[in-house]
Design a protein around this nucleic acid. Structure first.
Lengths: 206, 206
DNA sequence: AGGATTTTGTGCGAGATGGAACAAAAAGAA
DNA sequence: TTCTTTTTGTTCCATCTCGCACAAAATCCT
């Protein structure tokens, strides 16, 4: 007995799904990424995903549920990517690799830059929504730890001169990534932002 | 012939205004600052300002016009404040004074932190609105110049050791201010953010 | 084939949102 | 006092937004 290809899962009955949940979630994330949570309507998302609104609700819950799923998915992707790009090579190489990967995400939309999903959308909602605020704060904490650990490793390996505090350098490294994200969304060119990354790394690693 | 106190201006006829335009604009800014542009309705603003919606429109134009006025007013205030806080003393003192003043703004709302008006609201709208995007990019450029000039001044005064690039240090200083703004809105405590500022300054000024 | 289950698609409704119309209120000028 | 001007306040309107109801479609099971 062969499963059909559309909506492949272990369901045994009923009309098959006309969408892939992961693809739909990504499309919804794309819509939110452009216009923010409040500025994106369910019709916008329906159009982006090719699904009708009742189907969206059945699959993901209400608009806020969907946004929370997208936000958590973005954090999962972001932190996993950074764990990889920060590993190996010198600290300078690791940081540049990390900023390059970030730039690729920030410019991953064909019609223009969209920056970071957290900085571009969640920060605006976080004052009014405690759960979003908590997710963002937790994510920032994890981001900090990734930077601190990598920088501490470089210090222990003798890569850094002077009496450096990894936590302090991590703040600068994180701030650099975030100013790049903000500027991407403000229309700065990718090459300009790459130049910013290089300048910051030169100071952090001296 | 004495002017009345309410709605004091040089108008010669008609019913006097029941509001002060500057105060009303500040109240509207407060409302946008909390929930972002798209998340704030005209009724929200009417409530915050004590004005009816037709009066708001007569005074400021439509919702977007009002938001643009608030955004420009914020930039004017922000850059003027920074020009003052960056002047005088050592570079370290100037930077700490600047971050302290920024923190005061970011925590200027009684019920909780609101961060920076640009980072918290304009960044979300900037992908869809070219004029907002332009205002933000111009403001970031002015911010950069303030930092670069102050750091170049400190280098020329012999305050900085080694072969430093003011533009590179300015990126770090700006990134630090922005990560503080993001974190304020994400619920970080003021004392924590002050600690972040101090660590960053210690590295920038070494 | 009929019944059960799951998903899609269409239409409807309540409430929210931004804008407009215009009468009433409050002032100055003649 | 009447007229003119400016502002406020109330009401109405068109459209948008989100949620729901439910019939139809597409599958599996008996």
């Amino acid at each position: 007995m062969e499963q059909k290809e559309i909506g492949v899962d272990t369901r045994t009955r009923g009309r098959p799904r006309a969408y892939d949940p992961d693809v739909a979630l990504q499309r919804a994330m794309d819509a939110f990424w452009k216009s923010g949570y409040s500025g994106t309507s369910l019709d916008d998302i329906a159009h982006a995903t090719g699904m009708n609104r009742p189907s969206l609700r059945a699959a993901f819950g209400d608009k806020r549920d969907l946004y929370l799923k997208a936000l958590r998915a973005y954090w999962g992707f972001k932190l996993a990517t950074m764990a990889k790009t920060l590993a190996g090579g010198t600290l300078g190489e690791a940081l540049l690799r990390t900023y390059d990967a970030a730039l690729t995400v920030y410019f991953s939309e064909e019609e223009g830059a969209r920056g970071c999903f957290v900085v571009g959308t969640a920060i605006t909602e976080s004052v009014d929504d405690p759960e979003i605020r908590e997710i963002v704060a937790t994510g920032f904490g994890a981001l900090d730890r990734l930077f601190v650990d990598r920088i501490a490793q470089a210090r222990d390996a003798g890569e850094l001169t002077g009496d450096v505090d990894p936590a302090a350098l991590a703040i600068l490294a994180c701030g650099t990534m975030q100013t790049i994200a903000l500027r991407a969304r403000a229309g700065f060119a990718r090459e300009t932002l790459w130049g910013i990354a290089q300048k910051a790394v030169a100071v952090i690693c001296r």
